[in-house]
Design a protein around this nucleic acid. Structure first.
Lengths: 113, 113
DNA sequence: AAAGGTACTATGCATGGCCAAGTACTATTG
DNA sequence: CAATAGTACTTGGCCATGCATAGTACCTTT
């Protein structure tokens, strides 16, 4: 039980939320997402992102279209489906609740009555 | 890939952080922790909490002493070890970073330049 | 045509939350 | 004193996800 491992565990599920959010803002492909995640200091590797996108696709939350590129193989540009949009709303609520609950616990010792 | 499942995944690692925080405030046993978690609307079941406490103990992050009870079997009262305190500090940083990164991503669409 | 970069795919492992069933101790009740 | 109910802790197995690693396929450059 080391820190590094716990960091990985903490990431679980949250990544899915972040990815859906990024896709919700417009058509993007994997490298765009990696750039945004990296910019936000949420380190993600390919081996995590691609399987996640495949799962989202298979669940019908996102869809993609192939777009040819000038500098390499064609890319999958993703968009949210209606189902994905609803799912994202549910996730947002879940995440907000989780943060709220955690704050309540971790800041209790700082609360003064 | 349903909401309920993602909620479970989101909880991973965060629970460990919350538990360590609760223990850091003084001697508690499992039912105390459940009460606090429930009060903060972070629903946890026994089958999650007890194995987690065992892991924390085996990792040397917490220790416990048996205390007899007037209304049932003896209880394990937990406290943080020095190692556990350091670990909690590391986790706090990790959690804060994660929340910050997530906010940066999810609130980008609301940002106005 | 050879080399290097870009984009996506596939397989298998480790981990933690959860379910479900079980053990063990105490107090209460008839 | 046996039976019941309540409390506290234990154990084994399942599942989904993040990740490591290796591989496929396409394009551009030289």
């Amino acid at each position: 039980m080391n820190l590094e491992n716990t960091q990985v565990q903490m990431r679980k599920g949250i990544l899915e939320y972040c990815i859906l959010h990024i896709i919700s803002r417009g058509e993007v492909y994997a490298s765009d997402m990696l750039d945004e995640l990296t910019a936000a200091r949420m380190i993600v590797v390919e081996g995590t992102l691609y399987p996640l996108l495949t799962r989202l696709k298979n669940s019908g939350l996102v869809e993609y279209k192939w777009v040819e590129s000038k500098s390499g193989p064609p890319r999958k540009y993703y968009t949210l489906t209606d189902s994905g949009t609803r799912f994202l709303h549910g996730l947002t609520e879940t995440w907000d609740d989780l943060v709220h609950s955690t704050n309540q616990i971790t800041q209790k010792s700082k609360t003064i009555y």
